[in-house]
Amino acid sequence: MKSINNNAPVKCSKTITISANSKKVWEALANINNWDNWQIDISKSKLNGELKPNSTFDWKSGGAKIHSTLHTVKPCIELGWTGKTFGMFAIHNWNITEKDGKTEVNVEESLEGLFAKLLKNMLNKDLEKRMQNWLYLLKQECEK
């Protein structure tokens, strides 16, 4: 797994426990083409090829068009990518751990670049809100 940049001006990490097995959580996260059906902040998502490292996907989140490249694909364990938008570079990682029929999901992201430096305070608050929402929506999707 490629580590986030802990020195980036914008970074966040969040964890949630989902009452579902890791396979169900993985299926929701790894089906990039289906994100826009349950993740309300995403209006479009398209995987360009297979779900494997170095494959790319294009998506639109919060009005921003993002081009991302998968760096880690370990079914039911880890999913990670890098992405670029508005002159910023992101590293985004998901870690999945199943315990006693429930799944703990940790998500972390770092953002760097000129806009990340200039808008550090606003972007940190926004990232925290977006990550919390993504986890909440993932929990809803997997527990239904």
Rank of each mutant, 00 (worst) to 15 (best):
M1C: 09
K2D: 11
K2L: 14
S3R: 02
S3H: 09
N5C: 06
A8H: 04
A8L: 04
A8I: 06
P9N: 00
V10W: 03
V10R: 03
K11G: 07
C12Q: 12
S13H: 02
K14T: 04
T15D: 01
I16N: 00
T17A: 10
I18H: 05
S19F: 03
S19N: 12
A20T: 01
A20M: 02
N21P: 05
K23Y: 02
K23G: 03
K23F: 02
K24R: 08
K24H: 04
W26F: 01
W26D: 01
W26E: 00
E27T: 07
E27P: 01
E27C: 03
A28E: 04
L29T: 02
A30K: 02
A30V: 06
N33W: 10
N33G: 04
N34D: 15
N37R: 09
N37E: 14
I40F: 07
D41Q: 13
D41R: 14
D41N: 13
S43T: 15
S43E: 11
K44G: 05
K44M: 12
K44N: 13
K46Q: 15
N48M: 14
N48V: 14
G49K: 01
E50C: 02
E50D: 10
E50R: 08
K52D: 05
K52P: 03
P53R: 14
S55K: 00
T56N: 11
D58Y: 08
K60S: 14
G62I: 08
G62T: 07
G63Y: 07
G63T: 11
G63L: 05
A64D: 12
I66A: 11
I66C: 10
I66Y: 09
S68E: 11
T69F: 10
T69C: 09
L70F: 07
T72Y: 10
T72W: 05
V73C: 12
V73H: 10
V73M: 13
K74I: 15
K74E: 15
C76P: 00
C76R: 09
I77N: 09
I77C: 12
W81E: 09
T82Y: 05
T82E: 08
T82F: 07
K84F: 04
G87I: 03
M88I: 03
M88N: 04
F89Q: 05
F89C: 00
A90K: 02
A90L: 07
A90G: 15
I91R: 08
I91G: 05
I91Y: 04
I91N: 09
H92E: 02
E98N: 01
E98R: 00
D100M: 07
D100K: 11
G101P: 04
T103V: 06
T103H: 03
E104M: 07
E104F: 05
V105N: 01
V105M: 06
S110M: 00
L111G: 01
E112Q: 09
L114W: 04
F115A: 07
L119N: 05
N121A: 15
N121T: 15
M122Q: 13
L123V: 04
N124D: 05
N124A: 13
K125Q: 12
D126L: 14
D126H: 12
L127V: 11
E128I: 11
E128T: 14
E128Q: 13
K129T: 15
R130T: 15
M131A: 10
Q132E: 14
N133Y: 10
N133E: 08
Y136K: 12
Y136P: 01
Y136Q: 12
Y136H: 11
Y136E: 13
K139L: 08
K139D: 09
K139W: 06
E141N: 12
E141G: 09
C142S: 13
C142R: 00
K144R: 14
K144C: 08
